[in-house]
Design a binder for these strands. Structure first.
Length: 485
DNA sequence: TTTTGAGTTGTTCGA
DNA sequence: GTCGAACAACTCAAA
């Protein structure tokens, strides 16, 4: 007689290796892996939701290849799990932790339900290198500045990597939804046909990607990662987002590089720690997702007019500045954007155009396949100036000089901007296949002249930032605003 | 409690 | 072309 099965609730952890919850469950007896399409996944942006669906499909095939299955259900997680427990006689549910406020609230309710029923309800670490609450300053607080955070974790080691477990099937499988019925790509329209050419889906592909990076690019990572036209970055954010590879696995590769003297290895580890830092901030200050992390910015005059034509032009990659437009089109076509592009388009939106960072945050959330709540919010607030480790207000990226500095051959815009050339790149042309028809864009619509003159935009931003309203402190207990002295 | 040193990612101007 | 200074003042972390 076999023991009762254990449900492994799969979320952003579409892997077999280094999966603590799966390994634990496999050690106990039969395993029922379950994915639930709930309001958290329903709320994802178009590209992210599509990419999640691709990842789920691949993961389901992988589980099948390993003698298991992925059971798909839709609805409120607590309801779905209760139903599954009743159907299967499972002895409980285990999962890998999430850290965003909506997921935390959901998971807390699930855990209560399980414990009240005398069932196993246990969460495991694995989405981050280090748990957000485990990194503390000397006085017991959380870190607000990256470098001290880095120093605090640089000498630590994540838990040892776990091998892929051997999964035992239950005596009987519960019913599963059909993934196609969920239509997770429905909001993408034509975009999915373009995006799928650039996606790198699944655990095996993620491990290949890491290996290739270690072999070919890690040594030059420190400087080359700034060049948007070079294949110098790991591109692992897409896979880390869906847990197709664990950050600990990437960290181990970086540490191995450091121990063998690979230049660039330490910077790779530092970038992984930036991801952890974003989660650290989101855990301790979840309001970073929705409002100015520094409340004294609440009075700043970013435009919140969603109908501002300047916003649409920015979204369409038609600002007239090749670096800005190339980056925005790269995102529309591939679902990712080079890190330097992210900084430049964000600086352009919040400073040259003086549009609210929330517009940028939301556009990235809709277009990125590697979208991550913590990194996205931190990045936008950092650029806008209202976030942690904020840039000095006078740091305004010049998209023209940045292009000359980091892409002297201008091959990045040459790849992504097809207008006005007799030899357009296929990727640049594919942008017109991906965009909504009502944008009425094609290679034959002339490339626009600059949306705003750079010097004038810079001067306007400097003035607005220098004369921003007097600092105002939020006071949560009194519900009033107190002017600081 | 006070002090000290430091803080991802830039640009422009003038010598 | 190259280089240093100026662009502010403040917050954070640790001693």
């Amino acid at each position: 007689m076999t023991s009762a099965p254990l449900i492994v609730w799969i979320r952003r952890d579409l892997r077999l290796a280094d999966h603590a919850a799966l390994s634990f469950a496999a050690s106990q007896g039969p395993v029922i892996p379950v994915f639930i399409h709930d309001d958290v996944t329903e709320g994802l942006g178009a590209a992210a939701q599509w990419r999640f669906g691709e990842g789920i499909a691949r993961y389901a095939r992988t589980l099948t290849d390993h003698g298991s299955r992925l059971i798909l259900r839709r609805g409120r997680a607590v309801d779905v799990l209760q139903a599954l427990l009743a159907e299967t006689g499972a002895c409980g549910v285990v999962w890998q932790r999430a850290y965003d406020p909506a997921s935390v609230a959901r998971d807390t309710a699930v855990k209560s339900m399980l414990h009240e029923g005398g069932l196993i309800g246990q969460s495991f670490a694995g989405h981050l290198l280090f748990e957000p609450w485990s990194v503390e300053t000397k006085t017991g607080g959380f870190y607000r500045v990256y470098t001290p955070f880095w120093r605090a974790v640089a000498q630590r080691s994540p838990e040892a990597l776990l091998p892929s477990p051997t999964l035992t099937a239950p005596e009987q499988w519960p019913e599963s939804d059909d993934l196609g019925d969920w239509r997770m790509g429905r909001a993408l329209d034509r975009g999915a046909l373009v995006l799928e050419r650039h996606a790198c889906v699944g655990e095996a592909a993620a491990l290949d990607r890491l290996d290739r990076f270690v072999q070919e690019a890690m040594h030059g990572y420190k400087t080359e990662r700034n060049a948007p036209a070079k294949p110098a970055t790991s591109r692992l954010s897409e896979n880390l987002t869906y847990g197709e590879i664990s950050p600990a696995r990437a960290w181990a590769a970086g540490q191995a590089g450091m121990s063998t003297g690979v230049a660039g290895a330490e910077h790779f580890c530092k970038e992984l720690v930036w991801r952890d830092f974003a989660y650290h901030l989101m855990w301790h200050t979840p309001e970073i997702l929705t409002r100015n992390w520094r409340p004294e910015w609440d009075g700043f005059s970013w435009s919140e007019d969603a109908d501002d034509p300047a916003l649409l032009r920015w979204q369409q990659g038609r600002t007239g500045y090749p670096f800005v437009d190339a980056a925005l089109r790269e995102m529309y076509v591939t679902g990712t954007m080079h890190n330097r592009g992210r900084m430049i388009v964000a600086s352009f939106l919040t400073k040259h155009l003086l549009l609210h960072w929330r517009f940028g945050r939301d556009w990235f959330a809709d277009c990125l396949t590697d979208w991550d709540p913590a990194s996205n919010a931190m990045g936008w607030q950092w650029t806008a100036g209202c976030g942690p480790d904020a840039a000095p207000y006078f740091r305004i990226f010049n998209p023209t000089s940045q292009l000359d500095k980091f892409d002297p051959g201008h091959s990045y815009p040459a790849r992504w901007i097809a207008e006005g050339t007799l030899t357009p790149h296929a990727d640049g042309l594919s942008f017109f296949d991906a965009v909504p028809r009502n944008w009425e864009l094609s290679q034959n619509v002339p490339y626009p002249s600059p949306q705003i003159e750079l010097a004038a935009g810079r001067a306007r931003a400097l003035k607005a930032y220098a004369t921003r309203p007097a600092a105002v402190k939020r006071d949560e207990t009194l519900g009033t605003a107190l002017t600081t002295d």
